[in-house]
Structure formats: C-alpha cells, structure tokens
C-alpha cells in the first residue's frame, strides 16, 4: 500500500500538472450555452456586414461575458500576452460598433480569429 502511494501520488501530480498546463486548447471551447465566444464573434461579423448595429452590439455583450468566463478557465495554461491581445481586440470591436466603422471591426475580428486559433 505504501509503495503504491509513493508511486501513485507523484504520477498523479505529474499527470494533473500536465493537464493544467495543456488545458487551454480544450477549456476555450464552449461548456455552457452562454460561453461560445467564437460563435458570438462570428455573429458580430455577419451583423456588421449587414450593418445591423443593434444586433452586433447585443452579440458583442454576449461575447464579452463569454470571454470573462473563458479567461478564468484558460489563464493557467496560456500566455498573458494572448489574453491581453484578445481583450484588446474585443475592446476595439466595441469601439468600432459604437462608431459604426465596419472596416475597423472586420480587421479586428480577423485578428481575433487568428489569436483564437493559436491560443491554448
């Protein structure tokens, strides 16, 4: 029993450490009905293309809430700079919606897509 414990605890520790350090790629995926960040940003894109600014703003608010949830989940395994960059991209999208500037929003959204693919 003691021998089992001596080997089991370190193996369990290494395995759980590894899981924590690599969890970003799957913890960014949606777990609930209100945390599908990628889908919300895609919705913002389609609303902006149709110049549907009110719906774009609603989708942005959902995206912001989803990001606050995801950020807490993935912060242990991703680089701080990536989190800061996604934060900035979302704030710029918010500014673009306020200014009804579709060009600025689209460039930020595609920057976000790139970050989102790499994060985790």
């Amino acid at each position: 029993m003691k021998k089992f414990f001596i080997y089991f605890v370190p193996i369990l520790f290494v395995a759980s450490s590894f899981i924590i350090m690599t969890s970003g790629s799957w913890l960014k995926e949606p777990f609930r009905s209100d945390d599908d960040l990628a889908a919300y940003v895609e919705n913002i894109e389609s609303n902006v293309r149709e110049e549907n600014w009110e719906d774009a703003n609603k989708e942005y608010n959902r995206a912001r809430k989803a990001w606050e949830l995801i950020k807490i989940r993935i912060q242990y395994s991703v680089e701080r700079e990536d989190i800061v960059a996604i934060n900035e991209a979302l704030f710029r999208v918010e500014g673009g919606i306020e200014a009804h500037d579709s060009q600025a929003i689209l460039s930020e959204i595609y920057y976000f897509y790139g970050l989102w693919r790499e994060v985790g």
């Binding site: 370190p10 520790f13 290494v14 450490s17 924590i20 350090m21 950020k71 807490i72 912060q75 242990y76 701080r80 989190i83 800061v84």
Partner: peptide
C-alpha cells in the same frame, strides 16, 4: 487575468516538480 492566483498555481506546480525531480 487573476495573476496572483495563476502564480500560486504555477509556483505550486514548480515546487512539487522540483521536489520530485
């Protein structure tokens, strides 16, 4: 980002990793 919390988790992982190694 809850930096203090992240540092606590990373420091704990480091501490026990060093002990094990």
């Amino acid at each position: 980002m809850q930096e203090s919390l992240v540092v606590i988790v990373r420091a704990s992982i480091t501490f026990f990793t060093i002990l094990l190694y």
